[in-house]
Write a protein that binds this DNA or RNA. Structure first.
Length: 480
RNA sequence: GCACGGAUGGCAGAGCAGCUAUGCAAGGGAUUGCAGAUCCCUGGACCCGGGUGCAAAUCCCGGUCCGUGCUCCA
């Protein structure tokens, strides 16, 4: 079994081979905490959560790092508006991040470095770049000089220096006052009046946007590491800039072996943005959708594809996830918490083979969900068959926990699932006698072909949340 | 304008050269007073034009449309 991943730099799927056998270092760009997390952040977090889960499942020892850019222009502007310290803004939104990502069952990374805790390393790296003549000091900060490494340009985007020069057009004059060339980018920005700042050899200021990730990945993962990830909107300029910084500083290339980028989220076919007014924070979404259903929805397309967030896909996710949850919790209940090895059960073996092949093919969660749906379908008919084969059921339980739970993270814990089912059962016993007597009345109405009365009683039961099902061997009912 | 990605049945979304994707929806049947649930069955797609293959949704070339990025913006 071979894992293949799509590498943005080579623009193709490549067989995954880590630098050190059996170990994987992975760095994924996290958020700039200037506002509460939105569902695009959730998608990024979930995508890399699942990538890490699958790497671990495949036997790799994984070191997963995800950062917070806790100082930046937008954070400063929010802090000025509110008249509070910038760290208060950042910490508040980082708290929000952890709260919602925990709810979405995103496992914690091994470390969450922050820019403000990496200042010495950042300064050291900038100094190194200056010493190596790749960066220069200007009146408003320190800049990386693109022309010192033109061969590195466009590794991720395919653009050349000339293209960008043309594309930038009239904006050249508006960016960065001290730059020698408009394509140069800031490594250190000198502080203006009232801005947060740190001491440096070039004056008090703060790091530019890109250098932090080079410094933090170096600090936590070393001079070369396996996977660097993030949203596809970061490909340019952020990740291109990182290549310049890291490779020029360390003197070798490539520093990053595989570049992985997740796709963006559209709302009803349009880009999600604050200006369009179709902006969903995760908290907004969680008011309407169960967290695990949202997670399900966000992995319904492979991580590189754009996801269109619309009511149809949400409704689909609600019903599909609901089916998974109720069959799982019911099977768990009947099998009394026992787990059974599923190997040897043909259908489950086949599903296992396909789900593995799908996940090994650039983490295709869509394929995985298809297999899970198919397993759920046969489990549901097993439960409905009245055979009460708890041995077989417990094998299904184990399979679902392994793939829907451990790998995709879309199952609640067994105790939560059990209590969901028990709630149903207790609700059932609560209203049982009333329902039974109504059903008897309805039965006699039906016997005398009094259909209006029969339907009236059925409506009454519907109001109570009871679904009536007539069948050849009598009338059954269940909680909707 | 330039770069990168995408275009598959009513919708969502696999497919990476030969073999049913799948789910939802639709139609037919079984069951039913009706409805629901369940089971069985069915139809239906590969943006356009060329090219290379015994064979192309799948590879190549050209076009059209869509998305994203083009310097601090998720």
């Amino acid at each position: 079994m071979t894992l293949r991943v799509y590498d943005t730099r080579s623009r193709s799927k490549r067989v995954f081979k880590p630098l050190v056998e059996g170990q994987v270092g992975i760095y994924a760009c996290g958020i700039t905490p200037y506002s509460p997390s939105h569902i695009g952040h959730a998608r990024q977090a979930i995508a890399f959560d699942i990538i890490v889960r699958w790497l671990r499942k495949s036997g790799f020892k994984v070191n997963y790092i995800s950062n917070f850019t806790d100082i930046d222009d937008k954070i400063i502007s929010v802090s000025l508006e509110e008249g509070v310290n910038f760290l208060e803004v950042a910490n508040r939104n980082i708290d929000d991040y952890f709260t919602v990502m925990d709810a979405l069952n995103v496992l914690r990374a091994d470390a969450y470095p922050r820019v403000t805790e990496t200042i010495p390393e950042i300064i050291e790296m900038i100094q190194d770049l200056i010493d190596k003549k790749h960066a220069y000091e200007a009146e408003d900060g320190v800049y990386f000089e693109i022309d010192t490494a033109p061969e590195k340009y466009g590794q991720l985007t395919g653009q050349t220096l000339d293209m960008v020069r043309k594309g930038a057009g009239g904006r050249v004059d508006n960016t960065g006052s001290g730059k020698r060339d408009h394509r140069d980018f800031a490594l250190w920005k000198l502080a203006k009046e009232g801005e947060p700042n740190w001491e440096s050899p070039w004056g008090n200021g703060r790091p530019g946007w890109h250098i932090e990730c080079s410094a933090m990945s170096l600090k936590h993962l070393g001079e070369k590491f396996d996977i660097h990830g993030g949203g596809s909107d970061l490909v340019f300029p952020h990740h291109e800039a990182e290549i310049f910084q890291s490779e020029c500083c360390l003197g070798h290339d490539p520093v990053v072996q595989y570049w992985l980028h997740n796709g963006m989220i559209n709302i009803d076919g349009e880009k999600m943005s604050k200006s369009v007014g179709n902006f969903w924070t995760v908290s907004d979404a969680l008011e309407k959708i169960e967290p695990l259903v949202l997670r399900y929805a966000l992995i319904n397309a492979p991580y590189r594809q754009p996801v269109d967030f619309n009511s149809v896909m949400i409704d689909d996710s609600i019903s599909h996830h609901g089916r998974l949850l109720s069959s799982y919790s019911e099977a768990l209940y009947y099998s009394e918490g026992i787990r059974n090895d599923y190997s040897g059960i043909e259908h489950l073996d086949e599903a296992t083979r396909r789900i593995r092949a799908g996940m090994d093919d650039d983490f295709n969660t869509r394929i995985a969900l298809v297999e899970i749906q198919s397993v759920v379908k046969s489990l549901t008919s097993l439960i409905d068959s009245d055979e009460n084969d708890t041995h077989l059921m417990s094998a299904y339980v184990q399979w679902l926990e392994e793939f829907a739970g451990e790998v995709l993270g879309i199952l609640p814990t067994p105790s939560v699932a059990i209590s969901l089912h028990e709630e149903k059962i207790s609700r059932r016993s609560e209203i049982s006698s009333k329902v039974e007597s109504l059903l008897e009345m309805r039965e006699s109405a039906r016997a005398s072909k009094n259909w209006p009365e029969s339907d009236r009683i059925r409506d009454e039961l519907t109001e109570m949340g009871v679904v009536v099902e007539d069948s050849p061997d009598g009338t059954k009912w269940r909680i909707s």
